[in-house]
Each structure stands twice: as structure tokens, then as C-alpha cells.
Nucleic acid binder design. Sequence first.
DNA 1: AAACCGTGGTA
DNA 2: TTACCAAGGTT
Length: 303
Amino acid sequence: MLHARLSDWFDDAARDLPWRLPSRTPWGVLVSEFMLQQTPVSRVLPVWEDWMSRWPTPADLAAEPAGEALRHWGRLGYPRRAVRLHAAATAVVVRHGGQVPGSHDELLALPGVGTYTAAAVAAFAFGRRETVVDTNIRRVHARLVDGAALPAPSLTAAEMNRAATLLPDDAGSSVRWNAAVMELGALVCTARTPACEQCPVLDLCAWVAAGRPAPTYVPRGQSWAGTDRQVRGAIMHVLRHADAPVPRPLIHDRPVDLAFGAPAALEKLHALNAPPEQLERALAGLLTDGLAEETPNGVQLPA
DNA sequence: AAACCGTGGTA
DNA sequence: TTACCAAGGTT
């Protein structure tokens, strides 16, 4: 009942995403999953298209410096993902002869691939029966089954077990089920203001039956202004747009004479007025994380 | 295991 | 306008 209802809904509600087309490749799915980590579909689409035409196979990306991956990551955020995706491409070439592996365990062993991404790629690229649990699926299950407004702050073993229980036995049906529940969470059963009037399983929803009770906890927001993350982001913005190593003095010291015209990205960094020790700490972190490297002439994206 | 890691659209 | 939030992973 539940499964048939969602499957029917998915038939005409599913978005036409390029990584879902029959022409998709495991590599394309892997790239999409990396980019979609904590990032909305709308922002991923253009970058994914660029990457697919630029690097149609893992070997194409692996043949380039990690800095190229970072440069073409654009402003997707969490640039460590670009470095890890580059490392994953390299591992695919070295360990798997250039073919993205299809098993959960082999995928999980790749850099930047956790339980969600491993399951998602195995399911959506290889048609395997996997327990896929992302933030959308967690929220749908929390409401539909638990009658709670939101899932627990962090993923629990009980949630994984329940998701496994709900999974259809047949591989093909399971892939469709995973995609449908995820899509419902993304389009209808949203976090902020769910469109319950569009929900195909409204009458089965425990949360609605309970009168849509409010969340029992308040999500902790992430601070931003004044944080190292903000400074790191600004530095990365500078490095992505630099066509040569950026001398450290240019990063640390606000140029007094801008007559020559400072790059906009550099001005943006300096506008933060970050304390010297914070700039130093942020830069050191970027170097440690492999997002940047030091040369005699300055700082640059990894070569 | 709590904290950290970017970014920009949206209400 | 501010705060939330988006197909998480790593330490």
C-alpha cells in the first residue's frame, strides 16, 4: 500500500535530473553524490554538467592536479569534497582499473565516501538493494512512522534498522523506493513547511494523525560571521581566482595603496578584518587539509 | 561523539 | 533581516 502509493507518486513527480537519465554513468552518479552532500540540487546542476564534459571518466580527473578540481568546484562549498573526489578518482584508477566499483564495501573505502554515499551509488548507479538513509529519508520516516516532526539530531542504529525493514525485497523495487522516499522528502515532506496537501501518503502519516506536533528540540544553528570557516572560504575564493601564487603578504596585510587595483576576492578577504592570528590559523588549516599549498612565491591551489 | 567544514536561497 | 537548511564525512 505504502510502497505502491509512493511509487505511483514518483512516476509523475520525479524531477528529470541528469544523473538519473538512462545515459548516466557510475562516475556521473558518484560525482553527483559528492556534490549533493549538504548542497541543494539547483546549485549542483551547472557544476555537475561542467565536470561531466570536462572529466567524463575518473581517469580524466585523476590526470589533473587536485587544484583543478578545486578551481572548478566553484562556490559549491565544503571544498574538501573536491579534493576527496579527486582522491577518489585516483583510487578508482589505481585500485579498480578506472571503473567505479559497485559494491558497498569497495565504495565505502574510497576517500570522502561514507555510508550514505556508498549506499546511494551502489543503488542508483548499479541497481543494488541498499539501505539508503539521507536527511530526506530520515525526516520522512520520522514523520510517517514515528509521528515526530524531525528525526533525532544524529543518525541512530534504530533508524537504519527501520529503513532496512521498510526496504522492498526486490532489488529494482528497492532502488525505486529509495529514490521515491528521498524525492518525497525533497519536494513535499520538507523540513521547514511541508506541503502535506500534496502528500500521496497523508492518510498514513503518524505525524499528521498526531496533529503535527512541534519538534521536541531546537536544531543548533551553525555560526558564520567571524568564524574560521568564513576566513577559509574567503582565502579559497582568492586562490581559485588567482592565476599565480599569492604572496603571503598580500593575504596577511591589507594593501594600503590599492592604486594598482586589488582583485575583488582579495578585497573581500581583507574586508573581513580577521585578526592576524585567525588568518594564520585559517591558512594553516587549508594547508593541512590539502586545499592549498605553499611555494616560495606564495600560496596556491595544490598543483 | 561533538565539532568542524562553505555557500547562497528562502521565509 | 536573521536564521534555517541543503542527497554528509571526518576527526
